[in-house]
Amino acid sequence: MRGATRPGDRIFLGLARGSGIFVLVVMAAIAAFLTYRASKAIGENEANFFTTFEWNPTGVPAEFGIAVLAFGTVVSSVIAMVIAVPVSVGIALFITHYAPRRLGGTIAYVIDLLAAVPSIVYGLWGVLVLVPQMDGLYGWLDDHLGWTGVFDWDEGPARSLFTVGVLLALMILPIITNVTREVFRQVPRMHEEAALALGATRWEVVRMSVLPFGRSGIISASMLGLGRALGETMAVAMVLSPSFDINLSLLNAGGGTFAQNIASKFNEATPIGRDALIASGLVLFVITLLVNGAARLIIARRKEYSGANA
């Protein structure tokens, strides 16, 4: 077998391989150019980039840091994950194991469609419909859990990290549900039937055969959702009323996320301001790269195992 000996073959292989290499070049270029612009900004920065609670790249001296953004990004994503993961697993179970078959198919289809709704629409809905609805819940949390400090509320508009977390949860629900559903569907029928034959209830079947089989799938789906939540821009920029300080209460307006900060500050940014925003974008890029890479590695490892089990 001699492969690419004919000129047509050689050209075609060259094109195909070239495209593959192009993808790698783009990834490398993203890292390289962001680092280049970021290094310019950080060279001008008089304060510590990682620990400063301020964003003032145009000041004399220029001082900016990502501490507030890192805090806001992590907190809103954690809230989103805490809500979205159990609910998504629930919906996935509902579709694959609980709903009548035809209903399950329809719901899976609708959730597929919902995954395509753009984030700007979630943002518009979030700020004009969800935020007014959250007031009551905020008041209740303040009355009963306000003493913890975390749920202390000053009666401001509900445009805080907590609402952002709830909105992000809604946005990543369809993605996590879709991936989890696919994994649950691959559970070997024999495992479930064996459990049923032993007299297990439906919940025991789920707990003994479905969840253990799907565990790594749930983890990787969650990490894909986490990657989305970390990088979500417009919805957060519209719902959150930002400020550059760390507020221990989740219900009081304030804080910020990487992506939201870039979108909100970009219009009035000077050249050094843009470079500073690019520097924060680089941090976001590295974080999402790590999260997504980890998710993919988990999925890849699972493939090998499931081949042995099937």
Partner: peptide, 19 residues
């Protein structure tokens, strides 16, 4: 890297073209 690229936040893609 194609897999990883799927997860690039859209704002980062924008920043890359910007820079």
């Amino acid at each position: 890297f194609v897999d990883v690229m799927t997860g690039i936040p859209s704002i980062v893609a924008g920043l890359f073209v910007l820079s």
